[in-house]
């Protein structure tokens, strides 16, 4: 009984559900504010993303007559539900152990593409040519950025695992780091870290990799036909996705808590996520333009994936 209660609490309040939504909107607010400062502007108030969500909920929902109505409505709802579940599974060093057991890294590998999948379903269900373009771009870029992600997972697992076996469990990787210091300061893992830093803007579609949603080109692609609460669901989804991706990289490379106090650890965790976001999302999107689809593909296949593979190789040899 207490297990069920605990799981419900984790899914609905902390660390999934409400806490993940709040953290995501907070990070988005900081992102917009800092981006404005980098462009010598004042920027919106910190609660602007939450105000946007509230505003969208009061708007009318329009559904194109040619769209597949069920898929059109279900895509954002399922996407949001998927990321909220994933957020409950993410471990927070010293606060929450997340999903435990063997192979939770594989589970995450299956859960991470859910937002991208929701995007694709939305793009194809909206029956708009721009949505279809966004759909095909999202799919192509997803194939590209999954490669360095898997290679980096394997590298971390190989580094943390015992002789002859890679640990496909976040908990094992985190325990290894508690014992031997964070992987961030491990020279063998630096290429994998670089690969993950390229992966974050790729999966969040910002800066160089703003390819599926490119506003001037395909007018926000799959989101073009969405309005009102459904668009709000997509915005929330992308905010929580940001949280998940940042928490994943923090867990893989620097999960070490600051002390034994839960509050301090939580603040420390948020601070790490914030710094990671400022570097990989905010500064990146302010200072770079957009690549073409095949150029973006090349970045992942030619640079990010080999970097992660180098780490994997080194970690396997230097065990």
């Amino acid at each position: 009984m207490s297990n069920i209660l605990e799981a419900t609490f984790a899914l609905l309040i902390f660390p999934g559900g409400a806490a993940a939504l709040a953290l995501g909107l907070f990070l988005k607010g900081i992102d917009r504010r800092v981006a404005a400062r980098l462009q010598r502007r004042v920027g919106p108030p910190l609660i602007q993303p939450a105000l946007d969500i509230l505003k969208l909920c009061t708007k009318e929902t329009l559904i194109p007559t040619t769209a597949n109505e069920a898929a059109f409505i279900l895509a954002p709802v399922l996407g949001l539900a998927g990321v909220l579940v994933t957020a409950a599974l993410m471990p927070i060093g010293g606060v929450w152990s997340g999903v435990t057991g063997l192979g939770d890294l594989l589970l995450l590998l299956y859960l991470l593409p859910i937002p991208a999948m929701a995007f694709m379903v939305a793009g194809s269900a909206s029956s708009s040519p721009y949505g279809a373009l966004g759909f095909s771009r999202e799919m192509a870029i997803m194939f590209a950025y999954e490669m360095p992600l898997i290679a980096a997972f394997l590298a971390c697992g190989a580094r943390a695992g015992g002789v002859g076996e890679a640990a496909m469990s976040l908990q094992t990787i985190m325990n290894y780091q508690y014992a031997n210091g964070p992987l961030l300061f491990d020279p063998v893992m630096l290429p994998a870290l670089a690969a993950m830093i390229i992966f974050i803007p790729g999966t969040m579609s910002v800066g160089l990799f703003d390819i599926p949603e490119a506003e001037p080109e395909v007018i926000e692609g799959p989101l073009l036909e969405y309005s009102g609460p459904l668009l709000a669901a997509f915005n929330l989804m992308s905010a929580v996705k940001l949280v998940i991706v940042l928490e994943l990289v923090v867990a893989l490379f620097w999960p070490n808590p600051l002390g034994s106090s839960v509050i301090v650890n939580l603040i420390w965790h948020v601070a790490k996520c914030l710094i990671l976001m400022l570097v990989t999302v905010t500064c990146f999107r302010v200072s770079t333009g957009r690549l073409r689809l095949e150029q973006g593909f090349t970045v992942f296949v030619k640079y990010a994936a080999p970097l992660a593979l180098v780490s994997l190789g080194l970690a396997s040899i230097l065990r």
Binding site: A36, R37, L38, Q39, R40, R41, V42, G43
Partner: peptide
């Protein structure tokens, strides 16, 4: 430089 100069709004 932009960060140090502050907003020009």
């Amino acid at each position: 430089k932009n960060l140090l100069a502050g907003p020009s709004t």
